[in-house]
């Protein structure tokens, strides 16, 4: 069955997108990403050391851009201007690569998105030719605004970034999914495999996660679990779940032919 995820005109076999932060070292990063089967991996853009530490290993040597689709993010940006500058640097760094993850944060305690600044940055980036995957609030109205603006994917949080609290508002996610004509990915909040499966069963097109894998006791094993959970959730969504029956059971075995009857 061909069931690829299409983002900005490009097809991907995996619906699991993973971050590259919080790992012990680059060996663990690469091993976990390989186990996850992810094709799209997020990276952050930061100032380099300017000669104090020559020979420092480079993440893109571990995750070569000819093998993975690198998704630069704007983590840590609190204004539209900083996010746009960061992604212009990322495009230069990645030789003109247009697919980016926009996130403009509102406050350091919750890392909740600042939606007015997010909308402003998205508009500028879309006009500038970027394919924008955008971290946003689970607000169907603003998700629609981002879509109408030309964003390549909308990525509502399921719960706070790095919290592992899971899918807190499945109803809002469903509202966003049901109206969307671009991919909807849950970005942030997944804690364990069942959370990823629930997101996919709701009809999400994909899931983006970092901490749930990197901060598991065994990140490589959790990456493998997440791969299966996303696949299982997707298949369950496509299969269509049985209707829920409240207050009445329905036996699975025949009711006739019982002995002694």
């Amino acid at each position: 069955m061909n069931d690829s995820l299409v983002i900005a005109g490009k097809s991907y076999g995996s619906r699991l997108l993973v971050g590259t932060g919080k790992y012990k070292d680059f060996d663990e990063t690469r091993a976990a990403i390989d186990a996850s089967g992810a094709e799209i991996v997020t990276v952050a853009i930061r100032r380099t050391n300017i000669g104090q530490n020559p020979g420092e290993p480079n993440l893109l040597d571990v995750l070569p851009p000819d093998r993975f689709t690198i998704l630069p993010n704007t983590a840590g940006c609190y204004t539209a201007d900083d996010a746009v500058r960061t992604l212009r640097l990322a495009r230069e760094l990645l030789d003109g690569h247009a697919l980016v993850k926009l996130e403009v944060l509102g406050d350091p305690k919750t890392l909740f998105p600042n939606m007015p600044e997010t909308l402003k940055a998205a508009e500028t980036l879309v006009k500038d030719g970027f394919d924008v995957m955008v971290y946003c609030a689970d607000d169907p109205i603003q998700a629609k605004m981002l879509e109408d603006m030309g964003c390549a994917a909308v990525m509502p949080l399921a719960s706070l970034i790095g919290s592992g609290m899971g899918i807190l508002n499945p109803w809002n996610l469903r509202l966003i999914i049901d109206q969307a004509t671009v991919p909807v990915l849950v970005d942030a909040g997944v804690g364990t495999a069942s959370d990823a499966a629930i997101a996919m069963e709701l009809g999400c097109d994909g899931v983006l996660m970092n901490t749930a894998i990197a901060h598991a006791k065994n990140p490589v094993l959790m990456a493998s679990a997440m791969k299966k959970a996303v696949e299982a959730g997707r298949e369950a969504f496509l299969a269509g779940r049985m209707p829920r029956k409240f207050y009445s059971a329905d036996p699975s075995s025949p009711t006739s032919g019982l002995i002694g009857s």
Binding site: R46, T48, E92
Partner: peptide
């Protein structure tokens, strides 16, 4: 505040008071 494309590194002369940002990709989510 303006990108200096790789192709212009060799011809772009720095001037007094310039503000440079030099960035790389690092682990992030």
């Amino acid at each position: 505040g303006e990108i200096v494309p790789k192709g212009r590194h060799a011809e772009t002369l720095l001037a007094d008071g310039d503000r440079l940002e030099i960035v790389v990709a690092v682990g992030g989510g």
